[in-house]
């Protein structure tokens, strides 16, 4: 590694999720119960933690590195940024504009790409992995395409090193049948999985310090996006209708009296599953 590593600027994309996303009575352990009150998507906490660990691994706050928490959306969205500042991000950015309502993945990606360009000197964009559904899983890949940056999605480990005058990243990715090592120079965009780390909690000091941190509020005009490119107007897909699916009802529940395995096979035979 070089003697003098330049300061890193990391943008972490965070979003606000309603408290109700996680059903409380189902969460057995304290950790998830606590998180059900979280106002920052828990999957984004892994991205923020990854950013903070990278800063710590390269000289800490004193080295001039900056972690910027970025969010977009209505007034509530800023809570995700506030929470990030309490956990340890250095500054926040909140893109808010009435025209953003109804954005699909491409609109969201265009707006976020514009924010990253507006920030100017971002070395690394970090995001959480998406939840299982919702087209939001498309956003990191679309951002990479729009910004013409290398993408590394689903990283389960992430390291940076500075040599030859540039930052380089090494990440690991796991899929069904292969584990991959991936390398890239920065700038790049990386999404991380829930395997990468154990996110920290804000402590009292962090909560106090957050009060002095800056949140810049930006409009679409500030980042140079025409309102017609985002929101309902700029969407490339449309949901025609949504039907709630009938809730699954409980079927037959039996207690094992020594023959439950055979009764299970009877059930499978009835359902023509053998």
């Amino acid at each position: 590694m070089d003697e003098t590593t330049p300061a890193l600027r990391i943008a972490v994309l965070v979003k606000h999720v309603p408290d109700t996303q996680f059903d409380r009575h189902l969460n057995g352990d304290d950790r998830t119960t606590d998180r059900s009150e979280s106002i920052l998507s828990e999957l984004d906490e892994y991205a923020l933690e990854a950013a903070l660990q990278l800063v710590e691994a390269h000289g800490g706050d004193g080295a001039g590195h900056r972690v910027t928490a970025v969010t977009m959306g209505g007034a509530g969205a800023v809570n995700a940024v506030k929470k990030s500042l309490q956990i340890g991000a250095h500054e926040g950015v909140h893109l808010t504009d009435d025209a953003l309502a109804g954005s699909d993945a491409s609109g969201t990606s265009r707006a976020l790409a514009a924010v990253i360009r507006h920030l100017g000197d971002v070395d690394l964009v970090l995001t959480g992995m998406a939840s299982t559904d919702g087209e939001t899983s498309l956003v990191p890949a679309q951002l990479a395409e729009l910004l013409e940056l290398p993408q590394v999605t689903f990283a389960s480990s992430l390291e940076l090193r500075h040599d030859g005058g540039a930052w380089h990243l090494t990440a690991r990715r796991e899929s069904d049948n292969v584990a991959e090592t991936v390398e890239s120079t920065l700038p790049a965009i990386v999404s991380v999985t829930d395997q990468i780390n154990e996110p920290r909690y804000p402590n009292f000091k962090g909560i106090m310090a957050a009060k002095k941190k800056q949140i810049s509020v930006l409009s679409l005009a500030d980042v140079g996006v025409d309102p017609s490119e985002v929101g309902h107007a700029g969407a490339w897909t449309r949901v025609e209708d949504a039907q709630p699916r009938p809730a699954r009802s409980q079927g037959v529940i039996i207690t094992d009296e020594g023959d439950a395995g055979r009764r299970l096979v009877d059930f499978l035979a009835e359902q023509k599953l053998l």
Partner: peptide, 19 residues
């Protein structure tokens, strides 16, 4: 069990091998 079509209250180490 709330979403199961067929539920067995029992020990998997005996139910599964029997099945």
């Amino acid at each position: 069990f709330e979403i199961a079509d067929f539920g067995i209250v029992g020990d998997l180490t005996s139910v599964l091998p029997q099945a």
